[in-house]
């Protein structure tokens, strides 16, 4: 079966720094795929290249077989993206953002209206009907971002740190939505540095370290008998020094 997302030999260099070094990943259809790595490991860069937001120096990315760079219109219609920390049309309300994007995605007006209504209600954004996105809190921004990713009912979701700054109640709602999406045959790629979250949600995992794939595959194969955290620290941690303490703080 064609992978939902097929990343092949993606490489990106920023100046002297090799941010992503020949990464290859295949995300099977129907899988919940976690991408873990330290800050600056290259997760965001890799995902940006995979969905067509950053031009790779070399390599390719395919979404359900459609090349993201050669055939962007087809490929991008199949994916919903939640990038980390990018702006939105800031002077629109949440409902207006969804209407605007739904129309851009080519949905019919009544479909957009109904879906926007439901998304705002489920994500508890319907209280802030008059609030512009620029006035949203960080957690609300994540939620409206997720709503835009879900709006056109894509078959693949690529989510960069979707749970950051989201309150526990909303996080539980989002988890339920995402699990339901996978149960219905959808595929998700999610990046995070919260190991417990990835263990709880994902069935596949890839550990990214210094721009390369350190380990990848079904969750149980990657972590073996240990916890994901132990595996992760062993794979990417600096063994020589171990975990350091602040001598002046822990008197």
């Amino acid at each position: 079966m064609t992978p939902a997302l097929d990343i092949n030999a993606l490489t990106k260099r920023f100046g002297d720094k090799l941010a992503v070094d020949d990464i290859a990943l295949a995300v099977p259809q129907g899988s919940f795929y976690g991408l873990v790595g330290q800050n600056g490991a290259g997760k965001t860069t890799a995902l940006s290249m995979a969905v067509g937001l950053l031009r790779p120096d070399s390599g390719s990315a395919r979404i359900f077989g459609q090349d993201v760079w050669a055939d962007p219109e087809q490929a991008k219609a199949l994916v919903g993206v939640l990038p980390d920390g990018l702006a939105m049309p800031e002077r629109l309300t949440g409902r207006e953002v969804l209407t605007y994007l739904g129309l851009l995605r080519g949905l019919a007006k009544d479909v957009v209206t109904a879906r926007a209504e439901e998304l705002l209600a489920v994500l508890e954004l319907d209280q802030a009907e008059k609030t512009l996105v620029i006035e949203y809190s960080t957690g609300m921004r994540k939620k409206i971002g997720l709503a835009t990713a879900l709006l056109h009912a894509p078959r693949l979701l690529v989510l960069d740190e979707p749970f950051e700054a989201v309150d526990p109640v909303s996080a539980a709602t989002i988890k339920t939505i995402l699990r339901g999406f996978v149960a219905g045959g959808g595929s998700i790629v999610l990046s995070s540095h919260v190991m417990a979250l990835v263990e709880q949600l994902c069935d596949h995992v890839a550990v990214i370290d210094k721009g390369r794939v350190a380990a990848a595959g079904p969750l149980d194969e990657v972590r073996g008998a240990r916890s994901l955290e132990d595996t992760f620290v062993e794979l990417v941690g600096d063994q020589s020094n171990g975990i350091k303490e602040l001598s002046w703080l822990s008197r």
């Binding site: 207006e96 209407t99 605007y100 994007l101 129309l103 851009l104 080519g106 009907e129 008059k130 512009l132």
Partner: peptide, 21 residues
Amino acid sequence: PATRGRRPMTASTPGGAIVAK
């Protein structure tokens, strides 16, 4: 920004949505 009542977006095409935004 000013917070007055928001008029609903009446556009129904992609081009109209961009203009409305």
